[in-house]
Design a binder for these strands. Structure first.
Length: 536
RNA sequence: GGGUCCGUAGCUCAGUCAGGCUAGAGCACCGGACUUUUAAUCCGGGGGUCGCGGGUUCAAUUCCCGUCGGACCCGCCA
């Protein structure tokens, strides 16, 4: 094994090296090496689509670290047709737009110029939050401006060869009869309903009929129109079996990560790219799907799709990048409940990065590298204050609403996370917000019914009468211990009972001060309720 | 029909994609310490055929082949 460490010691650095070596072998110009990601525009972006971006961008960063000029291309599939009305939008009257290019469907939310723009901007917004930089290309513009015209023309004039490749690779025979091109029907405006039958390279016109198409057992009906589409004006698009190849060449893409769901498509496009367009396809890296673990309800409005926006409610963009980047192989199952773990793990990485925590030599390099990738190579200059997520959630949950920040500040000071008189900083405020959202959405405080023993009842009754007259935190604390001892109960057991009554948890903050913070009368009332329930 | 991933402590998983110290973490559990334990904290402990069988190698949890079990993708469209 070679002991030499490449770049930052991560998989991405290794990949970048392979890309460079391949390009050199191919004797191609590497003064600019582009990576690419596909930007879906036909539904709410699943959090997995961010993985595609994050991983390709990490390779771009790795290339840059090795002195290569690189950029990520975000290619927006806004010319794709709407195949299915997404969950969550079933009442927006979108059925009538099935089969239409998403860029020509009005935005049901009314805030963007089209349905496609709305959806793709959700993902772009997430990329921005993560600090992922990209050059944006819209398929619509790419076709209309003729950026991809030469490649489209070549593919259509070699349609027979393309059809043969498709047949050989996946056994599908459609394209031995039909051209790999979807024209937009000039009459009804749909794109998936047309079938392209012939192409004339002299006029750049595709002859098509609007016949309809069955997608997932559902037929989208065509209007029967027969006409000609001008490929130079972007009056249609290549089908996916051919389009990747065309844009790889047109945009000079050298690397693209892809999910296993489109593995066959990539295989076909690699051959088309090489054999028909005479362009060596980009280096690839295949990754597994991102699956929902399910179980926890996610969001009311977003149609239950786990979007990046959902993540950002409870965790930082860097923690999301950590999830995406820490491991390349293997299926990633995602669940909102994993977010705290990733937040904590990022803190641990930061400790390694700032040498606060020791790791093996090779391991340390890799972890520091991973940390830098999570911050898209702009890591913080100073360590931040790490408060474990569950502690923060706990504090926020316990804190009286009116003085949340003060309560949390005081606790953090007494636990030593903050110096005396040190205030909350921006980072901690952010963490409080995450914790607040978390508690609000998942951990409603409920008053649980508690089975009380006779001794416990007596102890609680004593405590209640003591509370009436006591206003000092320490004395209240002592009163609890005394109430336990006087009735032959272990203090720990009584505390547990109290926490269950007051917080619905088996443990909690120091009760003396908390009783006061919560409002003594409220506590007394809660205890009375628990006692009364028992009497029934 | 074709293909991919996963299987490691009681649980959840890391480590495997660049083979190399005694295979790790969190939680759980057990024991001990601390006058009243409050995020408790600190110290210690038990726990593992790394799914199974072969192969390559000086060396395999890691690479290759096979096998069992679980999950997923493609075979319309994208």
């Amino acid at each position: 094994m070679s002991e030499e460490i490449i770049g930052h010691g991560t998989w991405y650095d290794m990949m970048a090296k392979k890309v460079i070596e391949r390009e050199q072998t191919l004797k191609r110009d590497i003064s600019r090496v582009r990576t690419e990601m596909g930007l879906g525009a036909s539904g709410f972006p699943h959090i997995g689509s961010l993985g595609d971006a994050a991983r390709s961008y990490a390779v771009t960063l790795a290339l840059k670290a090795q002195g290569i000029n690189s950029e990520l291309i975000a290619y927006c599939d806004d010319k794709d047709g709407l195949r299915k009305v997404p969950a969550g939008l079933t009442n927006e009257g979108l059925e009538k737009y099935l089969g239409y290019p998403v860029s020509s469907i009005p935005d049901p939310f009314g805030c963007h110029e089209s349905y496609g723009k709305h959806m793709s901007s959700l993902l772009l917004e997430a990329l921005d939050k993560c600090g992922i930089q990209y050059s944006y290309y819209s398929a619509k513009e790419v076709y209309e401006k003729g950026i991809i015209l030469n490649e489209t023309r070549t593919i259509l004039t070699h349609a027979k060869q393309v059809g043969e490749i498709v047949k050989q690779e996946v056994g599908q025979e459609t394209y031995t009869e039909v051209l790999p091109y979807f024209a937009v029907c000039a009459k009804c405006g749909r794109i998936y309903t047309t079938r392209a039958y012939s192409f004339d390279p002299k006029t750049d016109k595709v002859h098509y009929k609007c016949e309809g198409l069955e997608i997932r057992g559902k037929l989208i009906e065509g209007c029967g129109y027969e006409g000609e589409a001008d490929i130079a004006k972007g009056e249609g698009k290549l089908t996916w079996k051919g389009e990747f190849a065309a844009r790889w060449k047109a945009l000079d893409i050298r690397f693209e990560a892809y999910g296993k769901d489109i593995a066959d498509s990539v295989k076909i496009n690699d051959r088309i790219c090489r054999e028909v367009l005479c362009f060596e396809p980009p280096s690839h890296a295949k990754y597994e799907m991102f699956l929902d673990k399910g179980g926890k309800k996610i969001s009311k409005s977003a149609g239950n799709v786990f979007t990046p926006q959902v993540w950002f409610r409870y965790g930082s963009p860097q923690s999301l990048l950590l999830l995406m980047l820490k491991r390349f192989v293997g299926t990633r199952t995602l669940d909102v409940s994993d977010i705290p773990a990733y937040m904590n793990e990022l803190d641990q990485l930061e400790d390694v990065y700032f040498d606060k925590k020791q790791a093996g030599e090779k391991e340390a390099i890799r972890l520091k590298g991973l940390f830098q990738y999570c911050y898209v190579m702009k890591p913080p200059a100073k360590p931040s204050i790490h408060v474990p997520y569950n502690l923060m959630a706990f504090l926020v949950k316990m804190a009286p609403k009116e003085c949340l920040n003060a309560y949390v500040t005081e606790k953090l000071q007494s636990y030593g996370y903050l110096q005396k008189n040190q205030a909350l900083d921006k980072n901690l405020m952010q963490r409080i917000q995450f914790a607040l959202n978390w508690i609000r959405d998942f951990e409603e405080i409920k008053e649980t019914e508690v089975q009380l023993t006779t001794e416990e009842k007596k102890a609680l009754t004593e405590l209640v009468s003591k509370l009436q007259t006591e206003d000092d935190a320490d004395k209240i604390q002592n009163a609890i211990f005394n109430a336990a001892k006087d009735n032959g109960i272990k203090p720990a057991a009584l505390f547990k009972v109290l926490y269950q009554i007051l917080l619905g948890a088996t443990q909690g903050p120091r009760l003396g001060p908390y009783v006061l913070a919560m409002g003594k009368q409220n506590v007394i009332a809660a205890l009375q309720r628990a006692l009364n329930k028992e009497h029934l």
